[in-house]
Design a binder for these strands. Structure first.
Lengths: 182, 182
DNA sequence: ATCAGCATGTAAGGCGTTACATGATTCA
DNA sequence: TGAATCATGTAACGCCTTACATGCTGAT
């Protein structure tokens, strides 16, 4: 296991449920997961090769019926153990970079209309993302009885709750800056 | 300006108010800013050298009264222009990595006590951070009349509002997992 | 005397993004 | 016929973290 390459764990987490190709993995990450973690092909494929070399995953059916090669990866016992060990360590790095807040913090270098503009832009994107998250929640509510779906549901509601807090804050911030001289 | 090195802008934002040494800059970033952006010496010093070479900042009084050299940096007009230009571009990358949510999402690979443990750990740290943020807010409320402080205040309340949303979510999540079989 | 804080930097190594390269299939 | 999607990978480049290296000052 590479020390700081968390994408390894994301992949193991996904493979725990089903065998997937690198391409499938990318699609899964681009779904609900993308709200709290990102991945790219230049990230995923090297991770898969390394983990295969080290016995965390193995190649399954290379299912080449006429078309281009398609490699299904399967998690090994070593891989499952690594996943579970990670789940059982307390340590969890939540690394947040908000360029929006950076701009707001240094807003004094320009006039307040600039800051207001940046808040509005942020607000728009949050609204759009919130709609997507609510779509996910709706789908998940229909299948909440299935074990894993509770976990998916909780991460989605985390997103919804924080995004709604963002929107409330946007309202307050606009009011506060609006009522300010300068 | 380096394309993707946002630390440049953080430094320019800080220097816009006052001349600072690299060491001072690090301390500023470790304060309220650390909740939405991070920096390290291995990050800051190279950025300062580059920006000096390219005319965004310049060295001021090397104030060496007996002690070790101490380099105060001062923002140039070119630097101010770059800062303002950045403030006026809509684009803002908010890159959030929540390892906590990653673990929760894949919680189905272990039993629910593990997930509950991770939520509790997250909750503890959020509570601690929230206390720090509320301390900042209290200090800022005393000086809200000064221009820039409104911006600092808004970023701090952003943190408080989202952290409070996190805590509410923790309560709901614990309840939901607690009332689950398995 | 010793430890924490002040102060500046470099070096190695790792990780990630972006772009590039290639080619098949399916649908309009 | 052309575009989008499926599918796998590599290469360059850049950024950041961590550790290392050095040495002064002030307080206990």
């Amino acid at each position: 296991m590479a020390k700081d390459r968390k994408i390894d764990l994301v992949i193991l987490g996904l493979l725990f449920h089903e065998d997937l190709t690198g391409y499938d993995i990318k699609k899964r990450i681009d779904g609900a997961i993308s709200f709290f973690w990102k991945g790219s092909f230049g990230n995923i494929y090297p991770s898969l090769s390394d983990m295969e070399k080290n016995g965390f995953v193995e190649k399954r059916r290379a299912e080449t019926k006429g078309r281009r090669e398609k490699i299904l990866y399967h998690i090994t016992e070593k891989g499952s153990d690594a996943l579970k060990e990670w789940l059982n360590t307390e340590q969890a790095a939540n690394d947040l970079k908000y360029e929006t807040l950076l701009k707001l913090y240094f807003g004094g270098a320009e006039d307040k209309s600039t800051a207001l503009e940046n808040i509005r832009y942020f607000e728009e994107r949050v609204k759009a993302d919130l709609a997507v998250l609510k779509g996910y929640r709706e789908s998940l509510e229909k299948v909440l009885d299935r074990q894993d779906h509770v976990y998916y549901y909780l991460t989605v509601t985390f997103g919804i709750d924080t995004y709604e807090a963002y929107l409330k804050w946007c309202g307050k911030a606009k009011k506060m800056l609006g009522g300010m001289k300068g």
